[in-house]
Design a protein around this nucleic acid. Structure first.
Length: 612
RNA sequence: GGAGCUGUAGCUCAAUUGGUCAGAGCGCCGGCCUGUCACGCCGGAGGUCGCGGGUUCAAGUCCCGUCAGCUCCGCCA
């Protein structure tokens, strides 16, 4: 209340109104620019008041803009009127300040500040806009409740770190456009209002007023359009494009996100990988000055699962898993029958793990259980002797086999994961590997890129009782596995590839099917009737029949890329206006209810969600 | 749909076993202060302890429910 009254006084005195922001008040330099060589020059600065230090007789403020801050001095001996008015200034007021830049008196320089050797001595100033008291403090706002930051996002973005994040994102997109442009790629926009193809993620739907009862979908990706652009002969396409998926959110997942979408004609996997590697290496050099080795390390999906228990392994953690089925096969031990029935036993060697206490071991086992494991056995080698609950089931030969297979040394521990399902055993132990690696400081190096290749083409979905595409239904099968396409679809490997950085899926792509007959077969394997395939993807099938070049591409997640480059914890910190975990925007209050009239025009009736 | 963590002043947090527990720092307001730079000093305002119920002589604290935010699982071709 007092503050409001105060603002009123400012207005009444005409301090705010009697002057206009004409060209004489426009800045002659940015707030982060003044240097020693500017001393003696007249200058005008425009910016936000960031820090006020009123010593009574003399007032210092820092004037901030996105380039930095400069100290401004109000000295009553030099300008009593300006000094008097300055005592009413508060944080985040927008000011225009005229004066003389001068070298700071000896001993008062501030080495913390880029502009710290000079200061602006005020002749005159005007308040361009006052500010209400801000709801959180600008400095160390990183620890502020994120909901509050999102509600006042424009203030959050006025902070140094967020400005830096936005700027880095801009530099990345600029580099991206330049890189692909220089390499013969053309950026082409594809529609945001498009057709729902109920494969994959849930669609965001948009009702059509002029077609009552019909809906567009926002694109989950421009996949089909970019393939058709290849049919058009565009040859090399790229687009920095928004994509939409109506699925639950995570720290690295937002309902709308940005892809760097790429497609090329007359190429093989090698060409896509090469251009992606050149792009990423160039980008990391440009933005971080980091040297990235190319070509990237490659793993087949099978090996990635076997060795790291993940299809996006974090190679900064050196631990690998080993298959210990042989150790337990055919003997008298608790796992013998599991092996006989095709089960899997995986081992993970933890260097130095012999010092883990009984309690620590059982805590780890409990964590494995929360992942869905029935249990997790362990061995430890102390004084050259293998110890653990399973030792009594193993003879000398098997014990030496365990040592040679797992390469376990004195002082180590070895964790054992068993499951009927190979993939599940790998993934559960892989998760333990990841957690142990991070907790025990085993993360080495900064940026470890790799390709994961030879993904399965299809995956059995127990829920719907049919195969679904692991990547998408347009991915080409590997030539070697073609024969199984209709007989044993689960066995077919695809020409898909993911690029992985430090345990994060940065992007993925594939060589596409360019033969309409092959595409029809793929739909058949997915249990689409020809009619259903035609209804959903008829335009693609028809397009493919008019002379389609072999083609393929990749899509990289721009938000994740920026996040990893900046070392942010959440994708939200590299997006200007992200949504919260419920996919709401606390600032605009979207999504919201709309007028009945709007719904009527769209021929839409809503149902009380409580009745569903 | 499920699991976990969190919720106390504008912001960040504290309050031991249920008992002077309504607190601190920052911010805000007022006063003093001419070289500060996270200025300093003095004073002040400000809280339905997320919400509802229960146990108890007594609840910020224990129990049940509920809401909100975050993290994770499911989900995300």
């Amino acid at each position: 209340m007092k503050r409001e009254k105060f603002l009123q006084i400012i207005f009444e005195r005409g301090i705010f109104m009697e002057r206009y922001y004409d060209s004489s008040w426009q800045r002659t330099m940015f707030c982060g620019e003044p240097r020693l060589e500017d001393s003696g020059k007249k200058a005008v600065l425009n910016g936000w008041l960031r820090c006020r230090r009123d010593l009574g007789g003399i007032i210092f403020i820092e004037l901030w803009d996105k380039t930095g801050a400069t100290q401004v001095v109000f000295n009553p001996e030099l300008n009593a009127e300006a000094h008097k008015r300055a005592s009413s200034l508060r944080n985040e007021y927008v000011l225009a300040v005229k004066g003389v830049m001068r070298q700071r008196p000896e001993g008062t320089e501030n080495p913390e500040l880029a502009t710290g050797s000079v200061e602006l001595l005020v002749d005159d100033f005007m308040i361009l806009a006052p500010s209400k008291q801000i709801p959180f403090e600008m400095d160390n706002a990183d620890s502020v409740n994120e909901d509050l930051r999102l509600k006042y996002r424009y203030l959050d973005l006025r902070r140094e770190t967020m400005q830096k994040n936005l700027m880095t994102r801009h530099k990345i997109t600029r580099f991206t456009r330049n890189f692909f442009g220089d390499n013969g790629f053309m950026e082409i926009e594809t529609p945001m209002l498009t057709k729902s193809t109920p494969e994959g993620a849930r669609d965001y739907l948009v009702p059509s007023r002029v077609n009552p009862g019909k809906f567009y979908a926002l694109p989950q990706s421009p996949q089909l359009f970019k393939q058709l652009l290849m049919v058009s002969g565009c040859d090399r396409y790229m687009q920095i494009v928004k994509c939409f998926r109506d699925e639950d959110l995570r720290a690295d997942r937002q309902p709308e996100f940005t892809q760097i979408d790429v497609e090329m004609s007359f190429i093989t996997e090698e060409d896509i990988m090469k251009i992606t590697e050149d792009y990423l290496a160039g980008l990391f050099c440009e933005i971080l000055g980091a040297k990235v080795e190319t070509p990237f390390f490659r793993l087949t999906w099978r090996d990635a699962m076997d060795l790291y228990g993940s299809d996006k392994p974090d190679l900064r953690i050196p631990m690998r898993m080993t298959d210990l089925g042989k150790v337990f096969a055919g003997g008298e031990n608790p796992f013998a029958s599991l092996i006989e029935n095709g089960g899997t036993i995986k081992g993970l060697r933890l260097p130095g793990g012999a010092t883990l206490s009984r309690k620590e071991l059982s805590d780890l086992e409990n964590r494995a259980k929360t992942l869905g494991a029935k249990g997790m056995a362990n061995f430890q080698i102390k004084g050259g002797e293998l110890k653990g609950p399973l030792v009594k089931f193993l003879d000398e030969d098997r014990i030496s086999l365990i040592r040679s297979l797992s390469e376990i040394q004195d002082g180590d521990a070895l964790f054992i994961m068993a499951d009927e399902n190979w993939r599940k055993a790998c993934e559960m132990l892989g998760q333990i590997r990841l957690e142990l690696g991070k907790e025990r400081g085993m993360v080495e190096g900064s940026f470890k890129f790799l390709w994961v290749t030879e993904f399965p083409l299809f995956e059995w979905d127990a829920e719907t009782g049919r195969y679904t595409a692991v990547h998408h239904p347009f991915t080409a099968p590997m030539n070697e596995d073609m024969e199984y396409l209709l007989t044993e679809p689960g066995k077919v490997r695809s020409r898909a590839y993911d690029v992985v950085l430090n345990g994060n899926e940065l992007g993925g792509g594939s060589i596409r099917i360019h033969d309409p007959e092959m595409q029809a077969k793929a739909f058949k394997a997915l249990n689409f009737t020809p009619e259903a395939a035609k209804e959903r993807f008829g335009f693609l099938l028809e397009g493919l029949s008019f002379g389609t070049p072999p083609h393929g591409g990749i899509a990289l997640g721009l938000d994740r890329l920026v996040m990893l480059i900046l070392g942010c914890r959440s994708i939200r910190d590299v997006m200007a206006f992200p949504k919260n975990q419920k996919a709401q925007c606390p600032m605009t209050d979207a999504p919201n209810v709309v007028d009945e009239k709007q719904l009527d025009e769209l021929a839409i009736k809503t149902v009380d969600p409580l009745l569903l």
